[in-house]
Amino acid sequence: MASPSLRYDLTGRTALVTGAGGLLGRQHVAALSEAGARVVVTEIGLAQAEAAVAALKQAAPSGDLIALALNVTAQDSVRAASDELAGRGITVDILVNNAAIDPKVTSSPGVMHSSRFEAFPVPQWQTEIAVGLTGAMLCAQEFGGLMARRGRGVILNIASDLGVIAPDQRLYRQPHVTREEEQPVKPVTYSVIKHGLIGLTKYLATYWADHGVRVNAISPGGVFNNQDPAFVERLTRLIPMGRMAEVDEYRAAVQFLCSDASSYMTGQNLVMDGGRSVW
């Protein structure tokens, strides 16, 4: 039996992370690289991907990182990225579906009204669903399909605590906004996408169970990123641990879910929210 440390070792494996230039995307890349994986760092444009690689290299110069343009909403782009990697002799062993649009809740004119469900714009719905949910499906279809043919692979979908619970819209209320229909809210798309990713996880886990492909999800809670102090105070009152997550606190969980340390785990959603969803 391999020692616990060896089970986390990803040396010799290649991971691909979508939306890797964002706050958590870079953390996922760092976690996988730290465990020994070569990581394909993808963003919608090559310049963004290269910028993410450059920033990550500053902290870990020895990391084996590859910048690649990938538009997760376009099947042709997903296939082109897959073909480019194959042409370079690179096989993707781990797929992390992280790409998403996380609309920030603000009271800016025009933003607060359109976030309300009654006025939510259909084009915005379609765009956000395309990135966060359809993109995960297309990437799983391409890279997961190749894993299934080889008989081995791991897919990790990045969901959210709001894929388990509904948003508490009281968190976003602004005292200076007098009209209820203008109070900002967390948009419907975020919840639908994150719930959908958990559903996709369960579907693919059973679909490819006999092809050696494990599929799991992780549902992080809110990460502290210098948000408005009033918002942070309201949110932390809902969290038993009394604080938001630090930006690097999900790294070990990503390593666990993407490595042989979780070899008998599939179709599951690992909730890491400081206890918020159980209170």
Rank of each mutant, 00 (worst) to 15 (best):
R79E: 15
R79H: 13
R79K: 12
A81H: 01
A81I: 02
A81D: 02
A81E: 02
S82N: 11
S82M: 07
S82R: 13
S82I: 02
D83S: 07
E84V: 03
A86Q: 14
A86T: 13
A86E: 13
A86L: 02
R88H: 15
R88M: 14
G89M: 04
G89E: 01
I90F: 05
I90L: 08
I90M: 01
V92G: 06
V92F: 07
V92H: 04
D93N: 15
I94A: 00
I94N: 08
I94M: 04
L95K: 04
L95C: 13
L95A: 13
V96P: 03
N97T: 13
N98V: 03
A100F: 14
A100Y: 12
I101M: 08
D102K: 02
P103M: 09
K104T: 11
V105K: 07
V105G: 07
T106S: 15
T106A: 09
T106V: 08
T106P: 10
S107E: 10
S108P: 01
P109Y: 08
P109H: 08
G110C: 07
V111E: 14
S114F: 09
S115K: 14
S115C: 04
R116T: 03
F117N: 02
F117Y: 11
F117K: 01
P121H: 08
P121D: 00
P121C: 06
V122E: 10
P123K: 06
P123T: 03
Q126Y: 00
Q126V: 07
T127L: 07
T127W: 02
E128M: 09
E128G: 02
I129K: 01
A130S: 13
A130K: 04
A130N: 09
G132W: 11
A136K: 10
C139H: 10
A140V: 06
E142G: 00
E142W: 02
F143V: 04
G145H: 04
L146F: 09
L146V: 12
M147C: 07
R149M: 14
G151L: 01
R152C: 13
R152E: 14
V154K: 14
V154N: 12
L156Y: 12
I158L: 06
I158R: 13
I158D: 02
I158F: 03
I158H: 09
A159L: 07
S160A: 03
D161K: 14
D161H: 06
D161G: 05
D161A: 10
L162V: 08
L162Y: 15
L162P: 05
L162H: 15
G163C: 01
G163M: 00
G163F: 01
G163H: 02
G163L: 06
V164D: 06
V164A: 08
I165C: 12
P167T: 06
D168P: 04
Q169A: 01
R170V: 04
R170Q: 12
R170G: 14
L171Q: 00
L171E: 03
L171T: 01
Y172E: 03
R173H: 10
Q174P: 00
Q174W: 02
Q174I: 09
Q174E: 13
H176L: 07
V177D: 00
T178E: 15
T178G: 15
T178V: 13
R179M: 11
E180P: 09
E180S: 14
